[in-house]
């Protein structure tokens, strides 16, 4: 039963990634694209943890922690670049 639920969750998050990709290509403003990229990082964290359950290993926590940190820093850097024209003033 867990495998069935895992498949369903992976399907849902993969579809969510495709919807985010649609928003990135269409997005009328730059803020929309940054928001879609941020959501994409969150969905990828969920997919990594799901893959960790599927493989029955605990290695993927470190990977998802790193992805979370890099995603946050890249979102803030992108926003600051659009806002001020420079990342570190």
């Amino acid at each position: 039963m867990i495998d069935l639920a895992l498949t369903f969750a992976v399907f849902c998050f993969s579809l969510a990634l495709l919807l985010n990709l649609w928003r990135i290509t269409r997005g009328p403003t730059r803020a929309d694209r940054i928001l879609a990229l941020d959501t994409m990082v969150i969905n990828i964290i969920a997919l990594l943890v799901l893959y960790g359950i599927y493989e029955r290993t605990a290695v993927y926590y470190e990977a998802s922690m790193l992805v979370a940190m890099v995603g946050f820093v890249s979102t803030v850097a992108y926003c600051r670049f659009v806002l001020r024209g420079d990342i570190i003033e």
Binding site: A5, A9, A16, D32, T39
Partner: peptide, 26 residues
């Protein structure tokens, strides 16, 4: 219990990204 958590998480993740393309304004 675990399957319920997984299904809820999947549905909410999908709803979050569907709202991203459904809602009108940034």
């Amino acid at each position: 219990l675990i399957s319920l958590c997984l299904v809820t998480a999947g549905v909410f993740g999908l709803v979050g990204s569907y709202g991203l393309i459904k809602l009108k304004d940034t």
